[in-house]
């Protein structure tokens, strides 16, 4: 069975592999950027380590949703460091069989841009399963190395 942390982001139900989740914090502890940085909302100070907070809305060209007191920061463990994303509402964990996770490339037409993310169904709800490594572009990769 695969275990995922589920949350909502801008009205989309999302899931992350639990092994990629380092910790979850309240968004009030987040420092928004005074200067716009490509795809980054700001930084999260985790015991002295400044972790970039990825702007999922900008990355996905969605109408941005304001961060509020109920928002939470999910810190993710990557191959090359840590990054964080903002969740509107962290729900909990779910377990699904691997065969019930469908890569988007298997259902979207051939020939369009390859998509690293997947979908799964749990209790009749569709969850967008994030491949965080697949989200990162060169600029964000550079930030992690900075």
């Amino acid at each position: 069975m695969l275990e995922f942390l589920t949350f909502e982001s801008n009205e989309t139900k999302m899931a992350l592999p639990v092994e990629a989740v380092a910790s979850i914090f309240e968004a009030v502890a987040f420092h928004p950027s005074k200067i716009e940085r490509q795809g980054i909302l700001g930084d999260f100070n985790l015991h002295g380590e400044m972790i970039p907070v990825l702007n999922l809305d900008r990355h996905w060209k969605r109408e941005p949703k304001a961060i509020n007191l109920e928002s939470q920061i999910i810190v993710l463990r990557l191959n090359e460091g840590r990054i964080a994303i903002v969740a509107d509402d962290v729900k909990g964990t779910i377990k699904v069989e691997p065969e019930n996770v469908t890569n988007l490339n298997e259902i979207l037409p051939q020939g369009i841009d390859s998509n690293p993310h997947s979908l799964t169904v749990y209790e009749n709800e569709i969850y967008f399963v994030l491949d965080i490594e697949g989200l990162l572009d060169q600029k964000i990769g550079d930030l992690l190395h900075a």
Binding site: K13, L56, W60, K61, N115, F128
Partner: peptide, 8 residues
Amino acid sequence: LSTMPLQP
């Protein structure tokens, strides 16, 4: 329908 980020 559920919409996905960056769907065609």
